[in-house]
């Protein structure tokens, strides 16, 4: 019995290590945190941003894997939704960045001046696609 418990704990610890390391690796590749620090000019606060990420991950994995609820007001969902959307939006923007899609496309079609308008196409596409998904698509 003890051996079983220890084995399970070891497996859990190992899986957690791998996933945690992978998560941090992805964040590093996308460079979202440096980007946010650059915009807000808060490079000195990097330690507290690290702590913020770690506590966020710990909190969500603990509460997400259990069936807890904090039975709070539903209006709390609006800031949560906005924040998670912003994060995913940055992730998506960073992903196109890493894949080098836009520079190649701009060069191919040769619209150097209208980059902003094409960027808006992607942006509105994301927002409207997402809204369409939640409002209509999930009912199909």
């Amino acid at each position: 019995m003890t051996i079983k418990i220890i084995t399970v704990m070891l497996i859990g610890l190992g899986a957690g290590l791998a996933v945690g390391a992978g998560f941090v690796a992805i964040l590093t590749v996308f460079g979202i945190i440096p980007r946010l620090m650059q915009i807000t000019k808060t490079n000195s606060k990097i330690r507290s941003y690290e702590i913020s990420i770690i506590t966020g991950v710990l909190f969500s994995s603990w509460y997400g894997l259990r069936d807890y609820t904090i039975s709070s007001s539903q209006w709390l969902l609006i800031p949560i939704g906005l924040a998670s959307g912003t994060f995913i939006g940055m992730l998506a923007a960073a992903l196109t960045e890493v894949l080098n899609v836009l520079p190649v496309l701009m060069k191919r079609v040769g619209f150097k001046e209208q980059v902003l308008i094409l960027l808006m196409a992607i942006l509105f596409g994301k927002v409207i696609g997402s809204l369409f998904h939640w409002i209509f698509f999930v009912h199909l």
């Binding site: 807890y68 609820t69 949560i80 912003t86 995913i88 939006g89 923007a93 992607i122």
Partner: peptide, 25 residues
């Protein structure tokens, strides 16, 4: 997790989420 009620279509979360997507980009 937040409200303690089940809702299959949590639009209150998802509409701000969608706006956030654009904001993040």
């Amino acid at each position: 997790l937040v409200t303690g009620r089940r809702n299959d279509y949590p639009l209150l979360l998802q509409v701000p989420y969608s706006i956030g997507l654009g904001l993040g980009m």
